[in-house]
Amino acid sequence: MSSVEAVDVRQLINQCALSRWQKKLIALCFIVVALDGMDIALMGFIAPSLKAAWGVSNHQLGMVISAALIGLALGAMVAGPLADRYGRRLLIILSVFFFGLWTLATALAQNVEQMMLFRFLTGLGLGAAMPNVGTLVAEFAPERRRSFIITVVFCGFTFGAASGGFAASWLLPRYGWHAVLLLGGALPLLV
Rank of each mutant, 00 (worst) to 15 (best):
S2Q: 12
A6D: 01
Q11W: 00
L12N: 09
N14F: 13
Q15P: 00
S19K: 10
W21A: 13
W21K: 14
Q22W: 08
Q22M: 06
Q22V: 00
L28T: 00
I31W: 10
V32A: 14
L35G: 03
D39K: 08
I40L: 14
I40A: 06
L42W: 05
M43W: 12
M43A: 07
G44D: 00
G44R: 10
G44N: 12
F45T: 01
I46T: 06
I46K: 01
P48F: 11
A53R: 06
N58M: 14
Q60H: 04
Q60T: 07
Q60Y: 03
Q60P: 00
G62M: 10
A76H: 06
V78L: 15
A79W: 07
G87T: 06
R89V: 03
L90M: 13
L94E: 02
G100A: 12
L101W: 09
L101A: 05
W102G: 01
T103M: 13
L104N: 07
A105K: 02
T106A: 15
A107K: 02
A107I: 06
V112I: 15
M115L: 10
M116N: 00
L117G: 02
L117D: 01
R119V: 07
F120T: 02
L124D: 03
M130N: 00
V133G: 01
V133M: 09
G134R: 13
T135H: 08
L136F: 15
V137K: 10
V137S: 08
E139A: 15
F140T: 12
E143F: 04
E143T: 07
R146M: 07
S147N: 12
S147E: 04
F148C: 05
I149D: 05
I150Q: 15
T151C: 13
V153D: 00
V153A: 09
F154Q: 01
F154M: 03
T158G: 15
F159H: 03
A161P: 04
A162Y: 11
S163C: 14
S163Q: 04
F166H: 06
A168K: 08
S169L: 10
P173C: 04
P173V: 08
Y175Q: 10
G176Q: 10
W177Y: 14
W177S: 02
L182W: 05
L182Q: 15
L183Q: 05
G184E: 09
L187S: 04
L189A: 08
V191F: 15
V191G: 00
V191P: 10
